[in-house]
Computed example of a mutant assay.
Amino acid sequence: MTVADAGEDTRRERQPRGRVPGHQLWRRFWSRHNERAGYLFILPASAHLALFLLIPIGFSLYLSFHEWSTPGFLGAPFVGLENYRDLLQDEPFWRAMRNTATYTVLSVPLGMAVSLAMAVTVNRRLPGINVFRAIFFLPVITSWVAVSVVWITLLSPNAGVVNYVFSLVGLPPQAWLDNPRWAMFAIVVITIWKGAGFQMVIWLAGLQSIPTELLEAAAIDGANRWRTFWHVTLPLLFPTTFFLAVTGVIGGFQVFTPMYVITEGGPLGATDVAVYHIYKRAFQEFSMGYASAQAWVLFAVIFVATLLQLWYVRRRGETSLA
């Protein structure tokens, strides 16, 4: 062993174990071709995520503490928590939040029930069943604008097909989209019709993952279809139910397109939901700072609602184990 080798060994012994110098980490990274190629592959997606999601989110947080009402990045006065304090007394915003909660409470369970019924219906080995699955899924891939035009025509108070059917059974016609009493209900029906196909696919995946041995065992024990579904199928679908419930609540609080295209928040603010209210505040009144504060309050509500669902599931799991 030479003197140089002995000195190199001494330097290696002096280095703390578990720590690698920065230049060696960089050299090791670029010496591994597979890792380098992997990072290069995810670079475009990461740049897109940072440019169009992370940076706007950070900028909106910055705006929520400033009075930013004119285009430009400089010159916006810092107001601290004033925007958030004003929100506490902003009755139109909280009315929009109540409308959003009403929409979510109506659309999420009804949509899950309808889509589950569709999934049970098409979960059969019948000739041409794939055609029905495609028909049920077709509204999901249809443009919201096209769907809105169709439903505005169907719900027309004078020439709509729905009121015509009502007249055939002796019911009075209704101004579905012009009556504050019925407007939200009509929007809920439209969104359920459009989104049920997607949830049907998720339910169908859950149904097909249930072992057939359990269903056969229930049939041997004398359980009919309803008891088998209620006591065997539905409990085993709990992970799917939880996933659809969480995503449904998040999507319900973020609903925007049907209110924007069909009702424009009307009539009399009956369908003015949170995201549409924020949109008007930001892009019609150009109060970007105040709208950003509203957006972060909405984010906090969605975050808390999601945490409560996760807490319920965890507590349910601990109770079942006990």
Rank of each mutant, 00 (worst) to 15 (best):
W30T: 13
L40T: 06
A47C: 15
G38Q: 08
T70P: 00
L63A: 11
L49C: 02
G38I: 02
R32S: 06
L51V: 14
T70H: 05
Y62S: 10
L43T: 11
R32D: 14
L61M: 15
F41T: 09
E67M: 01
G58R: 12
S46K: 04
L63H: 06
L49P: 01
I55L: 11
L40S: 12
F59G: 00
S69D: 12
L53E: 05
L54S: 02
T70K: 07
A45F: 13
L63V: 01
Y62M: 13
T70Y: 02
A47F: 15
R36T: 10
H33W: 13
A50H: 06
S60I: 12
H66L: 01
L54Y: 07
S69E: 10
F65D: 03
W30Q: 12
W68H: 15
P56H: 08
L43E: 08
L61H: 06
T70F: 01
L63K: 13
S64T: 03
L61Y: 12
H33S: 10
I57C: 14
L61C: 11
H66Y: 01
L63F: 09
I42V: 14
H48E: 07
W68I: 04
L49Q: 02
A50K: 04
F52R: 02
L40P: 00
A37D: 00
W68E: 09
S64A: 11
L40G: 03
G38R: 06
S60N: 13
L61T: 10
A37N: 00
L63E: 14
L49F: 09
F52C: 00
I55Y: 13
A37I: 01
